[in-house]
């Protein structure tokens, strides 16, 4: 792989329980190995897959989610970090090992980590917008962008792909690729998926990768999907999808090579962001920020 491109790999995997960090690591290792992933690639596992480290009766505890996490999560954060660090270093890949819910002083947070190919933690991203039913989630007010090979990368968790402000902020901070490790509650229709990351990729002229968790998830059902996305103009048949058109529901892994030069060329040919209208937005947002409306 040349430095002028980045191979990305996403997964659509069933939720399952693990006896401990070694089993989780072995499971993820097998997924990467059987997918033929090369060093320096970026690998993104589905959201909340590491929650399989919690005991199977986690959802039976008769308290709220944040209290359950405080009681049962133990050192989930340390286990998640150790698995991610070792796996990324051993395989020499950039890695997002899914995401985790972690207890906070009040409520809980939803976070995902990004590791470099030397196993170094590049940073965390927290979910910034909560679904109505995520009453105890403490949303973050901050998003970050990291350099991953030739691309700058940002992450969207939980409801964030459906909140266009988040992807816009990441793009204007320089992101070229948006990652969405998700565990969407079923039913998660193809229509709803098209209104999420696919739209953010189109309206910001960036690449996108969505990985999804499926199957029973404690007492819920999750129905994740898989896709590697780009602006329509950069994909075969102008669908916005690498591979066949539409979100993947039939296979476990999908890889694509992303070339930053393609994005740059499109942004010159069709400069969407150059026609943003900041004077208009400022008039709307400034009074709200200053508390005048």
């Amino acid at each position: 792989m040349s430095a002028s491109e980045l191979t990305v790999v996403g997964f659509r995997l069933p939720f399952r329980h693990f006896s401990g960090p070694p089993e989780l690591k072995a499971y993820l290792h097998t997924q990467i190995s059987t997918s033929g992933v090369q060093p320096e690639a970026l690998v993104v596992f589905p959201g909340l897959i590491a929650m399989g480290l919690l005991p199977g009766d986690f959802s039976m505890l008769p308290v709220g989610l944040s209290e359950r996490l405080r009681l049962a999560a133990g050192d989930l954060e340390a286990a998640y970090l150790a698995v991610g660090e070792e796996l990324a270093r051993e395989l020499g890949v950039y890695l997002v090992p899914g995401s985790v819910w972690l207890p906070a002083p009040i409520g809980y947070t939803h976070r995902a980590a990004l590791f470099g190919p030397d196993g170094r933690l590049l940073g965390w991203q927290e979910q910034t917008h909560a679904y109505a039913w995520e009453a105890e989630l403490i949303p973050s007010a901050e998003v970050a962008v990291w350099q991953v090979g030739p691309l700058r990368v940002g992450m969207l968790l939980g409801a964030d792909p459906w909140v266009p402000e988040v992807a816009r902020v990441l793009t204007l901070q320089g992101a070229d690729l948006l990652l969405a490790p998700l565990a969407p509650i079923a039913p998660y229709s193809a229509t709803r998926a098209m209104a999420g990351l696919w739209q953010e990729v189109q309206q910001n002229q960036v690449f996108g990768l969505e990985s999804g968790l499926i199957g029973p998830f404690f007492d819920l059902g999750v129905d994740g999907k898989l896709a590697v996305l780009a602006p329509c103009e950069l994909t075969p048949g102008e669908t916005g999808f690498f591979g066949e058109a539409g979100y993947v529901i039939s296979q476990q892994a999908r890889a694509a090579r992303l070339e930053p030069a393609d994005l740059s060329s499109l942004r010159v040919r069709y400069p969407l962001l150059r026609h943003l209208n900041p004077d208009l937005y400022r008039r709307h947002w400034q009074p709200r920020v200053e508390g005048r409306t």
Binding site: T128, A130, A141, V166, V169, L172, L276, V289
Partner: peptide
Amino acid sequence: QEPLIRANPAFIRAYFPAIYRGFWR
């Protein structure tokens, strides 16, 4: 009346409208 996703005013305050600086027409 019952939005599916809760607003995050702190996020808006943190980034808007300043995020558009550098993209002035």
